[in-house]
Design a protein around this nucleic acid. Sequence first.
DNA 1: ATGGCTGCAAATAGTTTGCAATGAG
DNA 2: CTCATTGCAAACTATTTGCAGCCAT
Lengths: 136, 136
Amino acid sequence: MTQTELAEHLSAHDILPTAQRLRIAAVLLASPQHLSAEQILAQLKADGARVSKATVYNTLNLFSSRGLIRPLSVDGTRAWFDSNVEAHYHFHDVEGGTLTDVAVPEVQFSRLPEPPEGMEVAGIDLVIRLRRRPCG
Amino acid sequence: MTQTELAEHLSAHDILPTAQRLRIAAVLLASPQHLSAEQILAQLKADGARVSKATVYNTLNLFSSRGLIRPLSVDGTRAWFDSNVEAHYHFHDVEGGTLTDVAVPEVQFSRLPEPPEGMEVAGIDLVIRLRRRPCG
DNA sequence: ATGGCTGCAAATAGTTTGCAATGAG
DNA sequence: CTCATTGCAAACTATTTGCAGCCAT
């Protein structure tokens, strides 16, 4: 995505495209990714960008609330942000911590429970935990 | 579960049944529950037990590692512990934060992806997010 | 006595917030 | 000029750890 496209993307979601936000968007939206705030900050610093930790967090929260990215709860210890906002599921390598996308058609439910009275399904989070197969 | 049964349960999992551990086990294992460390501590204090925060955390980690309880990643902000270690899924009321069990037979997969080379499935975490149905 | 368990408090890790300085329009 | 955004540091929340004291063997 070009700088201009990124800027338009932000504007389209009512987000002022400032320098920092564009840098963060560039890292996250370059391709489908699962990144923690810390990783994004590290990446930005490595790229020589001048961005503070607070701005990274504020921006990530802003992006989530505007639907540009999606927060994930995979390991309790930190928040992950998924730049793929389309419906999809995840493989989670428990040992390495890596996340991989699983496309919707890869999973089919032949049965799902009825939500309780007065409630409706807002979304389905599916995480398939993986471990190395015992050698042999 | 009686005190004795609890003690035997702990011993069976190579856990010395100390006073504090029995109190914590009593709270958690009384019935299927989803509790945070903070909630457990509060409950214990309310019951007049003399247990420190550190011991609660240490004990919860010990119990998890020994398979008496299972840690859940539902909301990024804190860890939840599920005293039901049987395979099952969850409803998550996004607004209220409440967790409810979904029995395995309530969900059927007619299709699941092949794990990547050299990996095997260690478990499947399914969280069905619920919201209040718009009135009408 | 010995070794594991506990409590306290301090240390960590991740994230949020207050506020003055900055910067885009 | 004005007002949103940023950076820094301090505040906060959840959790872990170091260590001295305690308890049951």
